Amino acid sequence: MVIVGEIDLYTAPGLQAEFTRLLQESPATHVVIDMSGVEFCDSTGMNVLLSALKRLRERGGVLELAAPRPAVRKILQVTGLDSVFTVHETVPEKLLTVKRQA
C-alpha cells in the first residue's frame, strides 16, 4: 500500500475506510505501507495505523511501515511506535499491494 500526502484529522477517515475495504475484500495478512510520500502524520493518523495493525494481528497478520520521511520517523520515535511497528528503511517493492492517495 502506498500513501501520499498528509495523514491528519481530515484525511484519516479516508485512510481508515481504505484499510477497512482492504481487510474486508482481501485475505491479506501481510501489509507493507510505503510511507516515503507521507509528508506529515499526526496522532489521528497514527491511530489509524495502530487500528489497522490491531485488526491484522487479530487475523494473525502483520502491518509494516517502509521508508518513512524524517518527520514521520521522528513522530514514530517520540511516541515509541517505532518499537510497535516493524519499520523498514527502504520499500520492499515485492510486498507492495495497493496504491492510495491520502
Rank of each mutant, 00 (worst) to 15 (best):
Tyr10Asp: 12
Tyr10Leu: 15
Tyr10Phe: 12
Thr11Arg: 14
Ala12Tyr: 07
Pro13Cys: 07
Gly14Leu: 08
Gln16Leu: 08
Gln16Ser: 13
Gln16Trp: 02
Ala17Tyr: 04
Glu18Thr: 02
Glu18Trp: 02
Thr20Asn: 13
Thr20Lys: 15
Arg21Cys: 04
Arg21Ser: 10
Leu22Cys: 01
Gln24Ala: 15
Gln24Phe: 05
Gln24His: 11
Glu25Pro: 07
Glu25Ala: 15
Glu25Tyr: 06
Pro27Val: 10
Pro27Lys: 13
His30Thr: 14
Val31His: 04
Val32Glu: 00
Val32Arg: 00
Met35Lys: 04
Met35Val: 01
Met35Pro: 00
Ser36Met: 04
Gly37Met: 11
Gly37Val: 07
Gly37Pro: 08
Val38Ser: 05
Val38Cys: 04
Val38Gln: 03
Glu39Gln: 12
Cys41Leu: 07
Cys41His: 04
Asp42Lys: 09
Asp42Trp: 07
Ser43Arg: 11
Ser43His: 11
Ser43Val: 13
Thr44Pro: 01
Thr44Glu: 10
Met46Lys: 11
Asn47Thr: 14
Val48Tyr: 03
Leu49Asn: 05
Leu49Ser: 02
Ala52His: 09
Ala52Trp: 02
Lys54Thr: 14
Lys54Met: 12
Arg55Thr: 11
Arg57Val: 12
Arg57Asp: 13
Glu58Gln: 15
Arg59Pro: 09
Arg59Val: 15
Gly60Gln: 09
Gly61Leu: 03
Val62Ile: 08
Leu63Val: 10
Leu63Cys: 08
Glu64Ser: 08
Glu64Phe: 00
Leu65Pro: 01
Leu65Val: 01
Pro68Asn: 10
Pro68Leu: 07
Pro68Gln: 12
Arg69Glu: 10
Pro70Ala: 05
Ala71Leu: 12
Val72Gly: 09
Arg73Asn: 07
Ile75Phe: 05
Leu76Ile: 07
Leu76Pro: 01
Gln77His: 05
Val78His: 09
Val78Ala: 09
